[in-house]
């Protein structure tokens, strides 16, 4: 009989240093993404969030080429793109999305170039896969400490920006009247978002990090009415999905011995199921209310 508890100890799940690094960096990426994600969903900026993550892949691939730590590459590119979007920025959603799209097209073009150069000039033949779909189990242990520090910085920014961001999400004009510098706060928010996407791009991959950013937040917002508790719920979902995904991916080496299942798949699947389940619960609640009324 299959016993998870026995399996974990037997397979040395908790004694594997790659797993330790994955749990630590993955966990911090999950928490930061979930909390920043609540603002992203409230501001209806899913596309900008996704675009930043995708573009950060240009930095990740450049880092491989120049032999820099991946975190530096992802982070620098995401911040550059965030500043670019803010400079061109527009308050109209249509135009904002278009700007995100154009910057994204250019950014992915640069990624294509760097990946091509990675493959032709270095030994990183696995570059496209690592950058786009993450490298959870191959992260260097020495990235752990800087990654945690960056995560702490992002969380501090969230605490600092909490009320202004909510006010702006409700109405930018009111926020401006109250003396807030809406553009500056917008830029700071985008920079925080950059940290979140860079962390999760490094772990679950540039094009999948959107799952951690949007999924838990969107689910939590359906379950909770207050932004504060939504952030807590989102963090719990994100961290459960990430750690659950790491565990399942580790276990999957025993299902299909030759090629294990990717961590990113499990994380995305868990988040997606939670999102679907949240829709179901609100639908149920509505039905109950309709029957009671």
């Amino acid at each position: 009989m299959f016993s998870p508890a026995k399996f974990i100890t037997a397979a040395g799940f908790f004694h594997n240093s790659a797993v330790h690094v994955a749990l630590a960096i993955g966990g911090s990426a999950a928490v930061v993404s979930a909390i920043v994600g609540v603002f992203t969903v409230l501001r209806a900026q899913s596309f900008a969030g996704h675009a930043l993550a995708d573009i950060s892949s240009a930095g990740g691939s450049a880092a491989l080429l120049f032999g820099l730590p991946p975190l530096v590459g992802f982070l620098a590119m995401a911040m550059l793109a965030a500043s670019g979007m803010e400079v061109v920025g527009s308050r109209q959603i249509r135009e904002r999305d278009l700007v995100s799209g154009v910057v994204l097209g250019a950014g992915l073009g640069v990624t294509a170039l760097f990946l091509y150069l990675d493959v032709s000039m270095t030994t990183a033949s696995n570059a496209a896969n690592m950058v786009m779909f993450g490298s959870m189990f191959t992260m260097a242990p020495e990235t752990m400490i800087p990654a945690l520090w960056v995560a702490v910085l992002a969380l501090a920014m969230c605490v600092l920006l909490y009320r202004p961001l909510l006010l702006i999400a409700i109405d930018p004009d009111i926020a401006a009247i109250r003396g807030l510098n809406v553009r500056l706060i917008g830029l700071l928010y985008l920079l925080t978002l950059s940290i979140a996407v860079a962390l999760s791009a490094m772990t679950i991959g540039a094009i999948l990090s959107t799952a951690l950013l949007i999924g838990p937040a969107a689910t939590a917002i359906r379950w909770s009415r207050r932004p504060g508790s939504a952030m807590v719920i989102a963090s719990v979902i994100a961290i459960s999905a990430t750690w659950g995904g790491i565990f399942l991916a580790y276990a999957s080496f025993y299902w299909t011995p030759n090629h294990g299942w990717p961590v990113s798949f499990f994380i995305v699947a868990i988040i997606f199921l939670a999102y679907l389940a949240s829709g179901r619960t609100t639908a149920l609640a509505r039905l109950r209310r309709a029957m009671a009324g």
Partner: peptide, 9 residues
């Protein structure tokens, strides 16, 4: 976004 990530996953 959710559709995108699920398909990519």
């Amino acid at each position: 976004a959710m559709t995108l990530v699920m398909m990519l996953g």
